[in-house]
Nucleic acid binder design. Structure first.
Lengths: 190, 190
DNA sequence: CACAGAAGTGAATATTTATTCGCTTATCTT
DNA sequence: AAGATAAGCGAATAAATATTCACTTCTGTG
C-alpha cells in the first residue's frame, strides 16, 4: 500500500501560507490551495478532515516554528544583554524570512477557524519569553514592570517593523536593524 | 419619496465591526451583517453595491476616524513632549475604545477586498504623524533615524498593547498606561 | 511478482453565501 | 391629501465553495 507523504503536507502548508499573505484568510479556498500546491482538491481531504483542521494545523505549525528558532544560540550562561540581543535578532530574522507566517498568524487570531484548544497551546509556547524578561528583571537590567506588558511592547515593535519593511519592500539594512534593537533596548532597560 | 437614512449606514458599520472583531473578516457574511444590524439583506444593497464596496467604505471610515481623533488638543505651540504625549494618549484611548476598528483594519490590510485606491487614500492620512515626529527631530528631542521607522515602532507598540489588553480582558490602569508611554518615549527620545 | 490497501484524482454534489427581484411601506413634494 | 419615488423587505436565484465519491494509480508486503 501507499503511505502518506510528509512532503505533501509541507506543500499544502506552503501553498496556503503564500495565498494568505497574498489575499488574506478570507480570500482563500480549498480549490486555490490545491491548485497552488499542485495537487487535486480531493487529496487535501486525505491529509486533513476539512478546511478547519487544515488551518488549525498550519496555525500550530507556524506558531511552533517561530518560537523554536527564537532561542537558538541563547544560553543562561551568556550575559543578559547579549543573550537578549540574540533572541531579539533571531525573532526578527525569522519573521523577515517568513513574512507569510506573520501575516497568517495575525489573521488567525480573529478568525472562526482557530479552536480554543489550539489557542491555548499557542499561549503555552510563550513561556520561555516570559522567563527571559524575568531574568533581565532579576539582574536589574530590565524595568520592573508587568512582564507581559514589556513582552507585548517588544513583540509589537518587531511585528510592526517586519510588516512595514515588507510593505515598503526595501531590504532592512544592518544599520536599521541595530537602530531598532537600540530603540527596543532603550525602552525596556532599567 | 423616501430618503436614505444616514443612521442606517452607521448601523451597518457597527454590525460589521462587531462581527469582524468576533469572527474575523473571513467569517462574516452579508446575512450576518444584516441580521446583526436588524435590517433585511436586500437593504444592504440599497446602501452599497456589494460586499466589496461595503468593506472598502468601512475601511475608509475607520481609518479616517482613528486619525481624526489623534490630534485633538494638539497645537504647534505646545511644547513638543507634551504635545507628543497628547497625541499618543489620544491614539491609545481611541484604540482601546474602538478595539473593533483595530481588528478590522488589521484584517483588511491582507484581504482581497481593499482596493489599491482605498489603500492609497489610507496612506495619505499618515502625513500628520510624520510631521509630528519630524518636529521632534528638529527640536533635537527625538532620535535622528528614519521617520517611518520611528513611527512604525511607536504604532506597533500601541497596537500590540491594545490587543494584549483586550485579550487578557483586564482594564488598563492609569499607571500601566503611563508606564507604556515612558517605554515609548525612552525608545524614541534622542 | 501479485495484489491489497491506501494515496491521488477531478468531476459531481451539497452547502453556503452573495445578489436580485417583485412586492410592500414609508415619506417627500406639490 | 394624493401620487410619486425610493427605501425596505425577505424569499428566490445565482454564484462560489466545501466536500464527497467512483475511479485510477501507486507502492509496501508477503
Amino acid at each position: 500500500m501507499k503511505l502518506k507523504d510528509d512532503r505533501k503536507v509541507e506543500l499544502i502548508f506552503e501553498a496556503a501560507l503564500k495565498l494568505v499573505a497574498q489575499k488574506g484568510l478570507s480570500g482563500i479556498t480549498m480549490g486555490d490551495i490545491s491548485r497552488e500546491a499542485g495537487i487535486a482538491t480531493g487529496t487535501l481531504y486525505v491529509y486533513f478532515t476539512g478546511k478547519d483542521e487544515l488551518i488549525n494545523a498550519l496555525f500550530a505549525a507556524s506558531r511552533a516554528n517561530s518560537v523554536q528558532v527564537a532561542f537558538r544560540g541563547y544560553e543562561l550562561t551568556t550575559p543578559f544583554k547579549l543573550g537578549f540581543r540574540t533572541v531579539w535578532m533571531n525573532i526578527l530574522r525569522y519573521k523577515l524570512q517568513h513574512f507569510e507566517e506573520v501575516v497568517f498568524l495575525e489573521q488567525c487570531y480573529h478568525s472562526p477557524y482557530i479552536t480554543e484548544e489550539t489557542r491555548e497551546r499557542a499561549r503555552e509556547l510563550a513561556v520561555p519569553f516570559y522567563d527571559l524578561i524575568e531574568r533581565g528583571q532579576q539582574e536589574m537590567l530590565i524595568k520592573t514592570a508587568d512582564t507581559g506588558l514589556l513582552l507585548t511592547f517588544m513583540m509589537g515593535a518587531i511585528n510592526e517593523l517586519v510588516k512595514q519593511t515588507h510593505y515598503s519592500n526595501e531590504t532592512l539594512s544592518k544599520k536599521k536593524i541595530d537602530l531598532t534593537f537600540d530603540l527596543c533596548w532603550d525602552a525596556l532597560k532599567a
